[in-house]
Amino acid sequence: MAVLLIAEHNNKELKPFTLNAATAASQIDAEVHAVIIGQNSTDAAKQLSELPVIKKVLSVEAAHYENFTAENYSPIIIKLAKNYSHIICSANTFGKNLMPRIAAHLDTSQVSDIIKVISPDTFLRPIYAGNAFATIKSKDEKKCVTIRPTSFDPCESTGGSASIEKIDASEEFSNTKFIKREEIKSDRPELGTARIVVSGGRGMQSGDNFKLITEIADKLGAAIGASRAAVDAGYISNDHQVGQTGKVVVPDLYIAIGISGAIQHLAGMKESKVIVAINKDGEAPIFSVADYGLEADLFEALPQFMEELNKLNTIQK
């Protein structure tokens, strides 16, 4: 049986993590269908049909799908579920909110936040905030699985031409009413979800010196992080803190500047895809987890770094 992917979108276009979830779905079974539920979401549906891994798109439109509430989404997915072995979506706040509601209706024990597909019924997932990994085998006939988006590469976004099938909407759930969504409009991405994080530690020596980091973060479209030591020293506010008692981040690129790499800090960033460390102490523990280490005085290295970035024609955002 095929796998059903639940697309996440904003009615105009797909949310990027849908591409990561599609990759995970295709690792379970080659026959991946995707359902897109929304209002005036035909452009997003078309975009979905162009993902080469998607073999068929099911599109549902109704006014009550405009705001993606789980209560409205779940009946239609439950109806579709009889044709599928797996239901897949991202383990972000959208998928976390939605999937258990579906799983409970299907009387299925959900497997949350997987980081690896071992076989169609066996998955790897972190537990205890990533301090242990569990290998889980599902014995349920239908499997509801949410995937950690950063653990799967996004699939190709063009070249496919899946058919788009319109299906009927289900009834509205009247006890939940959407009021508003306030997207945080900031030039800087949120620390928890940023693709790139630039972090400073006590090596920055003062709050003023953090402007060296801000400059680079602006250039890269990155969030700004900090070690606990830098926060305790008063260089930056504690909502920037990465680590055991701060935020756990898993960006594509983590740049640690003047951070020695206390284990509490490593606990918060060691799952990042690529780690860069800039530190003048060549023995600093941060180098033991860095993909690229630069042993240098940060006050010399950072202006050079900025210069090199300025030389680049393009920078991915």
Binding site: A132, T135, K139
Partner: peptide
Amino acid sequence: LEQLKVEEPPKRKAGIKVANV
């Protein structure tokens, strides 16, 4: 669900040192 195994996350290995910025 059957929990087949619980293990420590793999330790990250050190990469390379680069010479300059």
